[in-house]
């Protein structure tokens, strides 16, 4: 069953077309990678899926229901959005900040109960943030912040996680950690749409890739289908170096040391 489905999505901002007749679909348990050069409309597409902007044209459905027919509160329980420039405006402690992710499930007066606490603790373990829990957010390093903000999105326990360049600020090991977390979310029955610039990570972790260029979909499918010589040239003006693409397209050049 298609969890998320978009047809013919178009959007102009300030008279400039940002998205042109984009189709998109996401299945349960799937990780979809949005790739493309800067300014291709990846972030705008993600914001569209998050319900932050409405398409000028086209149809967007969550579980066969059009977006506008679902109230924002119940949508917020199902879709979590991790923005690229995520920040905290007040120096909350890490634990309090991650706890904010439970807000969609709580009423105005409800406090997080024991079940919420269990979820929060579990996610903090997974994201390797529990040792930071008393630290205030503004004292964290870039990598720690990224993990804390990801944890915030994960404690929502969303069906769909929309992540905009979640690995941009991270060192190689933590990049792998974050991608593994997204993968785990998918194997647990969740779905992920992730914007990535790293084609190796995209190839390795995503089930399908969708290549955008100037607001339009150039290709969608498996990495082999999408990252063809001609597509790479068209979208990025690059070509894969032969030495690196012998066994597999865009292999990962490193892995974590298991201890």
């Amino acid at each position: 069953m298609r969890l998320l489905e978009g047809h013919n999505l178009s959007l102009s901002l300030g008279g400039r077309p940002i998205l042109k007749q984009v189709d998109l679909s996401l299945a349960k348990g799937e990780m979809l990678g949005l790739i493309g050069p800067n300014g291709a409309g990846k972030t705008t597409l993600l914001r569209l899926l998050a319900g932050l902007v409405m398409p000028d044209e086209g149809r967007l459905q969550l579980e066969q229901q059009p977006y506008h027919a679902i109230d924002v509160e119940s949508r917020a329980k199902k879709i979590a959005y991790l923005s690229q420039s995520g920040t905290a405006h007040w120096p909350l402690t890490v634990e309090r900040l991650i706890e904010l992710g439970r807000i969609p499930h709580l009423g105005s007066w409800q406090k997080p109960n024991q079940q919420d606490e269990v979820i929060i603790r579990d996610i903090m373990l997974q994201t390797d943030t529990q040792h930071l829990k008393e630290r205030s957010f503004d004292t964290l390093s870039g990598g720690e912040r990224a993990r804390v903000l990801l944890a915030r999105a994960l404690v929502t326990e969303p069906d769909i996680l929309l992540a905009d360049e979640p690995v941009a600020a991270l060192d190689p090991a933590h990049q792998l950690d974050v991608m593994a977390l997204l993968q785990r979310h998918c194997s647990g029955g969740g779905s992920v749409v992730v914007v990535l610039h790293d084609l190796s990570l995209a190839t390795h972790y995503c089930h399908r890739l969708q290549l955008l260029l100037e607001g339009a979909v150039v290709a969608v499918g498996s990495a082999v289908e999408v990252l063809t010589e001609s597509n790479l040239k068209l979208a990025y003006q690059i070509t894969a170096r032969p030495a690196l693409s012998t066994s597999r397209l865009f292999p990962l050049n490193w892995q974590k040391i298991e201890d």
Partner: peptide, 23 residues
């Protein structure tokens, strides 16, 4: 009263708060 939770969510910025169901 009752705005507290919403103002907490705004700590994460307007867009994130909106994605968390805050109008």
């Amino acid at each position: 009263l009752g705005c507290g939770r919403k103002l907490d969510a705004l700590t994460l910025g307007e867009e994130t708060a909106q994605s968390m169901g805050i109008n």
